[in-house]
Design a binder for these strands. Structure first.
Lengths: 350, 350
DNA sequence: CTGAAAGCGCTTACAG
DNA sequence: CTGAAAGCGCTTACAG
């Protein structure tokens, strides 16, 4: 197995891929022109079976694999899209990522992704790094509240769709759940079961979904003519310590709540823990469904959103744009679904 | 805001990025050479403050962003690594992905990923597509049982680390949990609590982790001198229907089991549902921890593996190789941890 | 301090 | 059917 002379021809001694064969190497070994190798590699017509065989043998012998980075540079499109998530490890985003990936795959594109960790600077850094890699499009779960930094990119042709939360200060497609309506329905459900003192524990108020869900809570209370007391509402970080404290204060305050509406799955899980240790039963409806919610006692009534549908809808919209659709940016809202399992149907324990 | 003449100079009418400004455009506008623009963009020294300002103005006016694809082509390394998962939506892989991402980020690399959906062909296709993109390295959760297709890539310098399951027919780094020991300990725990008729329900036997955990089950039984009956063991797909049937058969068979050891989190969840509907109490220990396991009644005793540590260890190993460490491929095994929560401490209901 | 030339590994447009 | 030349947008190596 004689080595080709490539090694000696190259000046690059340190490069990671310094010793990868190129089309030029294949051409030399097969005794054909560069373009003929390109034809064989890409399955283009117009190559004699005999020539093709010789080229193929050289490819196999050298272990050649086309460098798509170089290809991309010449072709324009990279056949890759970027996904900027909030947290890869949050179970809510699992089905969403998978849905985006499936759509990308169906369109022959790869997925490059990363998490913002709810940090606007990190979101920006990541999104721009993806643009520098010249992804064809971007699916973004926004962490920040100003996305004007993406304007030049979008003007330059980077198709961009925001999911789960709307983009701020920029005109772009966005795919959301009906956060307001879902929360309103969930709280109305508690009211219908006789509750009047209902608490709301949600994520930080600057997060759009948290604000919308709080708005839904207020709307349901107002519709029922129930005045809301300040200490029934708590918005902030979703770490267990803060949520636990918030729940305990509502349960033991001057006018203790008989029911709690939780603003997302992480809050719900912590509140369940608090309620498990609480003497009298407290009703609970949570935003977001989660695995095993039906197996707890009581089962947890939730306002479920379809995170896979969010991802799928966003990705499909993205590729429609990449395929040339010149439609105006749109706001797409997906319905939520109330799932009764027991915790939301408990009567007030007064 | 006068348009530059770029648009007219380009023949490329269809390209997605046909109208993105390049360093050449910036150079022309700033009235400097190409290399000077490159210096400013990359923060290299040796540029007059005045020149730098002129270049920066041109950059801002044009909305220039460096094309990293072109850069990569020249530099060799792409500062990206690939991650081939089994399923993006499986909660077990969430912390693993996040850990890989954090390590990549710390090394200034982007993550390109995708799922094999447990399909060997798809794993191969995805891994090779990532190699064609010239990722610097690859973290792979293997789905197939022959990874020789990666040999040429690894020889060409693609650092590769396998996680969660070993690579087959190829010599490479692999980071695993102690599947055998964990399962053996879990089953021994049930035996210590008086059980002798213990069932095992696991994933498909061709999956390494499933086979190892079954081996651990057998070892624990043998250590205790308990003969295992064939219908106490069921390996196969982890869809709820099959698992449910397997569990019900063990519970109602000729010598019904008093305890079940489940081979992974998906199996565990289904078995919990079956046991919830079952008349007499059955002990349960599951491989893999999961959220809310402590809130079920009884709490679910598990053999927990540290999926974040798996990802972190694999990624760190990868970057050590990329940084030039020329160590022999190694098999790293991470310990598991038995967490008692109640279900595994139930006595036999004979 | 600054820049012209060559080259990374491909594809495009064109000519034989 | 086949291939030499030019170019994608950068960086490298070098010269002024």
């Amino acid at each position: 197995m004689p080595e080709t002379t490539r090694g000696a021809e190259r000046a690059n001694g340190t490069g990671r891929y310094g010793n990868r064969p190129t089309m030029k190497d294949v051409a030399a070994r097969a005794g054909v022109g560069l373009k003929t190798v390109s034809r064989v590699v890409n399955g283009e017509p117009g190559v004699t079976p005999d020539t093709e065989r010789r080229v193929q043998e050289a490819i196999d012998a050298l272990g050649f694999r086309r460098n798509d980075s170089a290809r991309v540079l010449r072709k324009g499109r990279t056949a890759s899209i970027g996904l900027v998530l909030e947290d890869l490890a949050d179970p809510f985003y699992g089905p969403l990522s998978r849905a985006v990936e499936e759509v990308a795959r169906a369109h022959g594109a790869l997925l490059i992704n990363g998490s913002s960790a709810e940090d606007p600077d990190r979101e920006r850094e990541l999104a721009l790094a993806l643009c520098a890699r010249r992804v064809d499009g971007l699916v973004v779960i926004p962490a920040g509240d100003d996305h004007r930094y993406l304007e030049p990119e979008m003007r330059a042709g980077v198709a961009t769709v925001f999911v789960d939360r709307p983009a701020a200060r920029i005109d772009a497609d966005v795919v959301l759940s009906d956060n307001f309506g879902g929360a309103r329905d969930g709280v109305a459900h508690l009211i219908a079961h006789g509750h009047r003192r209902i608490g709301f524990i949600g994520d930080m108020p600057n997060i759009h979904t948290a604000a919308e869900r709080l708005r839904g809570y207020r709307a349901a209370m107002e519709d029922a003519g129930i005045p809301v007391e300040d200490d029934w509402m708590s918005l902030g970080a979703t770490d267990p310590e803060r949520v636990r404290r918030a729940a305990e204060e509502m349960l033991t305050g001057p006018s203790p709540v008989t029911a709690i509406f939780t603003g997302n799955n992480r809050v719900t899980v912590t509140v369940i823990r608090v309620l498990a240790a609480h003497a009298r039963p407290v009703a609970l409806v949570g935003f977001d469904d989660f695995e095993l919610a039906d197996l707890l006692q009581p089962g947890v009534t939730v306002v479920a959103q379809d995170s896979a549908a969010l991802g799928r809808t966003a990705a499909e919209r993205l590729f429609r744009r990449l395929d040339g659709a010149l439609v105006a940016p749109e706001r797409i809202e997906l319905p939520t679904r109330l799932i009764e399992r027991g915790s939301g149907e408990l009567p007030p324990a007064d």
